[in-house]
């Protein structure tokens, strides 16, 4: 069989988006080097990447679910929080005699599984009856987020829990370019990168991935091919909530766990998805990193010159507004 080489699989718009994103990162780095000494730049970049990865863990599930179901799952931040609290619960339940390493891994796995199971219950029990009404589903997820917050407040109190101890080998600092950094940040970045690549492989290489990519375009045709699309929805929703819960537990040794922690991440995740182009997975992944770096840079500038981190949240809103003015469909969105 003779085959011809396909035209560049990556369309020109995708290449343009990648170039623009690359230039944006270079611009941020230039700003950093103008304002700060190299050791601070490394701190800012690491901080940006670690924040970006946490945003990604919340946003990735949201963007895939949105592409497939047209539902913006506003409870995704609550799943992040559920992950953190589930981690605490597992830490607290396992006896002291169990080593910190084992408890840590158990908490990561347990939080992920628990997040997935709650997601399963929510999809089957609450979202499924409303499939004909996407707007109702959005309102439902919003209400669910408040409910979960209040449940957590009722069980654990309003104060929040102090960060759990990570295993000793992650509870150290690293010296890079004359500065010192928590090793744990690097761990969070690694977890984020592994999931970024893993989800990408799932989408590109597996049958489930083919079905998801097809379903984003035309779920009716996918159904007419003999595929139970509802079951795919359930699975994807569950995977999304599991990843968010994993994110929450991964952040727990750093941020602790408190009611409302999900809301902070939800808002940023929505900004990430909008900047990335709503249902584009590549867009969400890259926008997470861009938003993280922007936020960290603005935070550092703001701390240094205004003595308050106020610019951090403002900067990403400005970033979103600029992207929307220039490209209303987002960096990687379809025109």
């Amino acid at each position: 069989m003779t085959t011809t080489t396909p035209p560049a699989l990556r369309s020109t718009t995708l290449r343009q988006s990648l170039i623009v994103s690359g230039l944006f990162v270079v611009g941020l780095l230039v700003i950093n080097f103008v304002f700060f000494p190299p050791s601070t730049v490394v701190t800012v970049v690491l901080s940006g990447l670690y924040q970006g990865m946490l945003f990604f863990l919340v946003a990735s599930g949201m963007s895939i679910v949105f592409g497939l179901l047209d539902v913006l799952n506003l409870a995704q931040g609550a799943f992040f929080m559920i992950g953190a609290y589930a981690g605490f619960a597992i830490y607290g339940t396992l006896p002291e005699s169990v080593s910190l390493e084992v408890r840590f891994v158990a908490a990561l796995v347990g939080a992920t599984v628990f997040g997935g199971l709650v997601g399963l219950a929510v999809e089957v029990g609450l979202l499924r009856p409303l499939y004909a009404r996407p707007v109702f589903q959005i309102v439902l997820t919003f209400g669910l987020a408040s409910a979960i917050n209040e449940i957590v407040r009722a069980i654990y109190g309003p104060a929040g829990l102090i960060p759990i101890d990570p295993p000793a080998f992650l509870d150290t600092t690293l010296a890079i370019a004359g500065g010192r950094f928590e090793t744990y940040r690097v761990f969070i970045i690694a977890v984020g990168l592994i999931l970024m690549v893993g989800i990408s492989l799932l989408l590109q290489r597996t049958r489930l991935g083919i079905v998801i990519r097809a379903g984003v375009q035309d779920r009716e045709m996918v159904e007419a091919l003999g595929i139970n699309v509802r079951r795919v929805f359930t699975l994807v929703f569950m995977l999304g909530t599991a990843v968010a819960a994993l994110g929450g537990m991964t952040a727990a040794p750093f941020l602790g766990a408190y009611p409302g922690m999900g809301t902070d991440f939800l808002l940023t995740a929505v900004i990430v998805i909008v900047i990335g182009g709503m249902s584009s997975y590549e867009g969400t992944a890259i926008a997470s990193i861009l938003v993280g770096l922007t936020r960290a840079t603005a935070e550092q500038i703001s701390l240094q010159y205004l003595n308050t981190p106020i610019l951090a949240s403002v900067s990403i809103l400005i970033f979103m507004i600029v992207v929307l003015l220039v490209r209303p469909s987002g960096l990687f969105g379809k025109e």
Binding site: M1, T2, T3, T4, P6, L9
Partner: peptide, 10 residues
């Protein structure tokens, strides 16, 4: 056969 690796949109 010739187009086996092409994206459907093309």
């Amino acid at each position: 056969g010739r187009l086996y690796a092409w994206p459907g949109g093309q």
